[in-house]
Simulated scan of single mutants.
Amino acid sequence: MDFSGQRLVDADFSGRTFDGPVSFQRAEFVGDVSFAGARFTGPVGFGRARFRGRADFTGAEFAAEAWFGRGTETWWEDDERWETDLVPPPWDEALDGPDPDWPVAVLVEDYQDWQEGGDGTVFAGDVTFAGARFAGPAWFYNARFGGAVSFAGAALGGRFHLDHPAADLTGAHWTGDGTAVFPLGWTAPGTGGEVVRDPAADLGSDRPELRQPIVTALCALLRSPSLTEEGRRDTQRLLADRLRRWPGLIVNLCAATLVDLDLSGCSAEYADFSGAQFHGTTRFAGSALRRASFSLDGPRGHATFLGEAVFDAEPPQYAVFRCGRP
């Protein structure tokens, strides 16, 4: 069953059974949508789907893979298409923005990397998987969440990847084999165990091994397209404070929207701002970024400065400065 690329308005799939593979790749859901109590007997893909309103998956059952990740076709490394000029389709863009050069990404078997272009499923509003049952892998890597996210009471039976820092997993259980990635602040003690809060998640100063996960979580919030301006500013201040105290970290702000970002005096091993949009005044004075990228490939996937920018050294070559280069 194939709903790929369709525009679905106020869709209600409550209680529906989907037999065999089903694809909602690149579908656009306008208004609120319900999959409450739906059953998927085969693999289902929501890669690059857009949920513009609330999404309800309460009590849904997934018998096989549930894919909410990047959502691209598989190319092998020796595929001749790698040698051609790849033209991005209209859904391959940074934050639904206007950049026509945002690069095409493809999946090579189970390999996926955010550097290769864009998001997975985007949920602009609240989404709930409360009480949902995942018998197979549940993959939310590169998904974006703009509202509340709930997996309360969900049963996770396979590989699981969810790193959104504000997700609620109260009462969820993971019984899967292999690897699982949970949001910062949550952990599964072992196979068959309840997913519980980690009370030491914010102790990066005392536990250096938590510093990178904390910075990764803050960056994930800043990449959320629907974070309020107040929340964005608060998160930026938290990130900058840690980068002034904790050396040697990786900062992933690829395609983030940033408002009056002040990274003066901050340090990082590597910082990626490709595809980012900088609003207001941006400050890098006194920063020590050992490596930094403001584009993906020359002018492709470039960062855009929409206001004043302050640098100690030469500004990045491929970034676009709407108010003129500093």
Rank of each mutant, 00 (worst) to 15 (best):
P247F: 01
Y270F: 14
T121S: 03
S4R: 10
L169M: 05
R144A: 10
E209G: 11
G192H: 06
R7H: 15
L221I: 03
P183V: 02
T187M: 06
A319D: 07
D2V: 08
F305P: 12
A49R: 08
A94M: 02
E308W: 02
L184N: 05
A268H: 02
H173R: 15
P88Y: 09
W67D: 15
P103L: 04
F151G: 07
R197M: 12
R290T: 14
R325Q: 10
G47R: 01
D113R: 09
W246R: 05
D126V: 07
G192R: 08
Q236K: 01
R7N: 15
V320F: 15
G301D: 13
A55Y: 02
R144S: 08
R7P: 01
D110K: 06
F182P: 01
D272V: 14
V44R: 02
R290A: 15
R159A: 00
S264V: 01
F13C: 04
F321I: 12
E314D: 15
A66F: 09
Q6G: 04
M1I: 13
L95N: 12
F145I: 11
G118N: 12
S267P: 00
A94S: 13
R223H: 03
Y318N: 14
R242L: 14
Q112A: 09
F321D: 09
L222C: 08
D198Q: 09
L169K: 04
L162T: 01
G178K: 01
Q25A: 13
E269T: 13
G147D: 04
D78S: 09
G153S: 05
V310S: 04
W139E: 08
S23L: 03
F182M: 03
R52T: 06
E230G: 15
